[in-house]
């Protein structure tokens, strides 16, 4: 089967330092893949190349077999990739419903509409999306006053607006109280499984990783050092050493 997402030999340097040094990975349809690693391992750089925010110095990224290397994020979105951010990025001056509506309007290519009020468009669809993430009760609230966990759920709803086949989630549970984390990821996993959406996420809460990932990739100093099922990665001696640190290597 063609992988949903495939990267080969990704390289990115900053001032001569290779932050990402030849990373290759593939993601099967419907798979949940976690990308982990200690500080400075190159997770964010790697992630931002996959979502189009950074241009790789070398390497190829394919989405369902189609080359998307160096495409801007908005083009990647149009090909069916939804995203959530480490620090939530939503439209603070709009209501929850309007945030989702915005994503739907963009998907429907109606952004240049100058006349018909937006509030009369796609309301039912937006409400349906909010219902999927359990946010319908908050539809009318300004998103500037939401609790952080609800903002994360709102982001998820927006990411689902283009009926994606892939979700890229950067630290989906960062900034949340530990108790909420499991619930959010369980919900995400449930939605993704039901719709057959593949998920690639970075994460530093290991409970979340081991509870929800089908497969784990471990980065250190820009290179993949381990890859496999969570249980296998957990006992990998190299991985343990990297996480615990070592002054001599």
């Amino acid at each position: 089967m063609t992988p949903v997402l495939q990267a080969e030999g990704l390289v990115k340097s900053w001032d001569g330092n290779r932050a990402v040094d030849g990373v290759s990975l593939a993601l099967a349809p419907g798979e949940m893949l976690a990308l982990i690693g200690p500080n400075g391992a190159g997770k964010s750089t790697c992630f931002n190349m996959l979502n189009g925010q950074l241009r790789p110095d070398a390497g190829i990224i394919r989405l369902g077999g189609r080359d998307i290397t160096r495409r801007p994020p908005r083009a990647i979105w149009r090909l069916g990739v939804g995203r959530t951010f480490q620090v939530t990025a939503t439209f603070g001056s709009m209501t929850v419903l309007d945030n989702v509506r915005m994503a739907l309007l963009s998907h429907a290519r109606r952004l240049l509409g100058l006349w018909r009020p937006a509030r009369h468009q796609l309301t039912g669809e937006a409400e349906a999306l909010l219902a999927r993430v359990g946010m319908q009760a908050q539809a009318g609230r300004p998103c500037g006053i939401l609790a952080y966990g609800d903002l994360k759920r709102l982001e998820l709803a927006m990411a689902l607006a283009n009926q994606p086949r892939l979700l890229l989630m950067d630290e989906p549970t960062a900034g949340m109280a530990p108790a909420e984390r499991g619930a959010l990821m369980a919900q995400t996993a449930g939605i993704a499984r039901a719709a057959g959406i593949a998920v690639l996420f970075t994460e530093h809460d290991m409970d979340v990783v081991f509870a929800h990932a089908d497969r784990v990739l471990v980065l250190d100093r820009g290179r993949l050092i381990a890859e496999g099922a969570p249980e296998a990665v957990r006992v990998d001696p190299l991985v343990r050493q990297v996480y615990l640190g070592g002054m001599t290597g």
Binding site: P38, A177, P178, L244, G245, G246, M247
Partner: peptide
């Protein structure tokens, strides 16, 4: 504050472990 446990072990008297 450290992630490198060996570094921490050589200099620290007390440890406080944070999670989330």
């Amino acid at each position: 504050s450290e992630q490198n446990l060996l570094f921490a072990a050589t200099v620290a008297d007390q440890a406080v472990v944070l999670e989330s």
